[in-house]
Nucleic acid binder design. Structure first.
Lengths: 231, 231
DNA sequence: TCATTGTGTGAGCACTGCTCTCGCTTGAGA
DNA sequence: TCTCAAGCGAGAGCAGTGCTCACACAATGA
């Protein structure tokens, strides 16, 4: 045991490659057919291996899905971070809408992966804690925008009823102790509402209702940003 | 042919009963295990019939799901309408939050049915137009609240950028020509955002983030209502 | 009365996730 | 350098799935 260093034997390198190949093929099937039709046997078949061999790499279908979920969160998180960096010198509200549009663009480009992470959780499946860091990335970008606004041009005041103050302060301590608790609370709500907009567009709820969805989305998320105190 | 009247033969009545029994058992399995694990064979087994017999009533698994979807939409719609009637003499904003809380309560009580209609669409499944009337009921309740506010105490002004005006007027003509286009546009956005809040709570996105979810929800939807112009 | 229709049966197809045993190959320690 | 456990792939097999089809029986309407 105690095999430590980076340059492992051919065995270990092969394992990494095969694992990646399985995930790639699985992602391809996911994009083509959706999570429910992702079949271990079909993945193995496509890779020219027998289905049981695949269990050497992923102990179950759910574990494969978990790997794909983490990748999807990371992919979306990267997109949000990239969108943020691309408009680094704009005002807070512009940065906010840019990040939101990055999220929407990613979702439209990867509908099945979006459904995997923000749609209904698959069967009895419940995401393990492993996914938490990747899942947090979009939220962290949004917090970053509020923070920069707070330290820079400032935030407008948003109301917070007293009955919610204990919970608001709990959340603030957890998420961003350096920010006004009103802004943090509004941010959490806006975060959820953002994905309501994206989900409704993606899952067909806007069919026959909203046509010019890009413009509608831009307007709606600008409203969200203002609700958080950005300007 | 041309069998017309209500009091059909025993055959027809039996068909209705069996159809209902199938849906009931299917709903039971849906609530217990979720849509993906709903099995025609298991339903048939539970009902003491052979699986192929079930195809006399529902031509495919998707058709059974469609029936359940419509029922779920109707159940949710009823709940929203009941919540509305229960606070008929309150102010518009109170009525708004009451309806939103009705939606949330229903979702928490029927998580799998909620996932079925507002989560990611099942496999390759895409909901047929049959579901539209049932799916519209919650939206109609919300429109009704805005209408009563408009005809009664009035709506506060909400901004609408000129670039969105054409789309906003299209939506208004479709949904509620008698209401201010600013309010209708804001309403559509709030409608989607409402389900973002519900979905995040139900699908675990609020785990480790929001604890006092009832209060948080109440606060957030009050903000949504204000964004539409209610007071 | 008789033919048509509706309904339940059971076998069967092609597929799924997953398990288990069997050998081959690899690579680290003696 | 040799050895032997561990890693890995093959294949058979189990229990389950959605769905189809030929068949038999019962209800219905002409």
């Amino acid at each position: 045991m105690t095999t430590s260093s980076t340059t492992q034997g051919a065995r270990a390198r092969a394992r990494i490659e095969v694992t990646a190949a399985i995930k790639d093929e699985a992602r391809r099937q996911l994009a083509a057919e959706g999570a429910a039709k992702l079949s271990l046997r079909a993945v193995a078949r496509q890779l020219g291996m027998v289905s049981s061999a695949l269990y050497r790499y992923f102990p179950s279908r759910d574990d494969l899905l978990t790997a794909l979920i983490i990748d999807a969160y990371d992919s979306l998180g990267e997109r949000a971070e990239a969108a943020h960096h691309a408009v680094a010198d704009a005002g807070p509200l512009s940065r906010w809408t840019a990040v939101c549009e990055g999220v929407r663009d990613w979702a439209l480009a990867h509908p099945h992966e979006y459904a995997l992470i923000y749609g209904s959780p698959v069967p009895g499946y419940s995401a393990p804690d492993t996914t938490v860091p990747a899942a947090s990335r979009v939220g962290l970008v949004l917090i970053g925008i509020v923070r920069e606004a707070h330290e820079g041009p400032g935030l407008t005041d948003v109301p917070l009823p007293t009955e919610l103050r204990p919970e608001a302060e709990r959340m603030t301590a957890d998420l961003a102790p350096d920010l006004p608790t009103e802004a943090v609370t509004a941010l959490v709500a806006a975060w959820a509402q953002l994905f309501g907009l994206v989900g409704f567009e993606l899952f067909g709820q806007f069919n026959r209702v909203v046509e010019d969805r890009g413009r509608f989305f831009r307007h709606a998320v600008a409203g969200l940003g203002r609700g958080v105190g950005l300007r």
